[in-house]
Design a protein around this nucleic acid. Sequence first.
DNA 1: GTCTATATAGGGATAGAC
DNA 2: GTCTATCCCTATATAGAC
Lengths: 218, 218
Amino acid sequence: MSQESAPLKTRDRILAKSLAMFNTQGEPNVTTNHIADELEISPGNLYYHFRNKDDIIEQLFARFEERIGEALLVPEGRTPNLEDIWLQMHLVFECIWDYRFVYRDLVDLLTRSRKLKMHFSRILKRAHESISQVCTELVKSGAMLASQREIEAVAQNIVVLTTFWLNFQQIKPVTGSKQDVDIGRGIYQVMVLLAPYLKAAERAHLNKLADQYLNPPM
Amino acid sequence: MSQESAPLKTRDRILAKSLAMFNTQGEPNVTTNHIADELEISPGNLYYHFRNKDDIIEQLFARFEERIGEALLVPEGRTPNLEDIWLQMHLVFECIWDYRFVYRDLVDLLTRSRKLKMHFSRILKRAHESISQVCTELVKSGAMLASQREIEAVAQNIVVLTTFWLNFQQIKPVTGSKQDVDIGRGIYQVMVLLAPYLKAAERAHLNKLADQYLNPPM
DNA sequence: GTCTATATAGGGATAGAC
DNA sequence: GTCTATCCCTATATAGAC
């Protein structure tokens, strides 16, 4: 019943390796044979543990869904400050990064599976609601100034930007040296969407945070 | 030498049908055999006109590149007003719509072809520059108030939003009735990015335009 | 649980007749 | 230019031995 943390069971090794390969090579370019090869097991063995490739994808997606669900929880009880938002965005981006294969070929993936599409829709909906809720609280607390209509539009833009930021990073013109994907930059771009609606003090505060983040002291 | 506009040559029929099928079904899900079937020609015939599937894709991409290039030209001579920007965004979105297969599986497509990746990077770069230029002119003309840093960040966000808007529309939770993709909504969301930096008069003007667009008089 | 061997299907692409 | 026929290859998936 309990998960011994001895060497990973084959089933879990398959999931872990699949995730790694999907992320680096893109799900459409990774076959069940490739996965088996990498693990040095037989294709037959892989199919003993999973009905088919889609089954593997669904299991991975389920883990992703659970993790992003936690990241999207808006902490109850007190009005979030900018650092809270920053942290939360970080959790969200890290989750997306860890399951980036989902986002890489998102349309194709969701078109192929009604089930995944429904679940992903739900995630988007929750993300939108989380953002709206945070904004509404910021307005109530006086840190932000925005109409309901503005909040809805901004929330939408934040969702789009967050969903596709990694894709954008990957197809972007190579602007010189550091080509590794930059989550911090993604958060910064999200904050830019929020900034114009913050009141002066908070806006200044945000700029300071942004400077720290874009030019880390280390 | 000259293009007679009689019934389309087979080569052009292949391109047109491929584009239509790629757009509706997604490029990865359309095989050369499917295309030939739809056209009621033989696969061999198709391969007489094109070296391979990638060749077809490249030809289509070239047409796309030319068209979006025109859409991205910033009209010289006078400072653009909001209507100009609206119109230009419309041209861009319509072009993206007509070649949406490029965007649907963008990362996969560009990963598979260095050439396409380079060309697409150039498009993104030009788009970013166009937007920056327009913003800079708006600031100079007094319609807009933004620092250089803000302009750069906003331009980036507009590029991301425009690039992925159609994808987002497609994976979005079905919110009831009209499920057809809505370019007007995309433009609106772009304008939302610009609005906070406009001065009061222009902002009011923009809101009026937005109302018209979101609730068309017809 | 794991392997070997294999069935099946489909996509990309070419040869050669017409 | 177009067709028929076909080849090659790879991917998914299964059967049955161990």
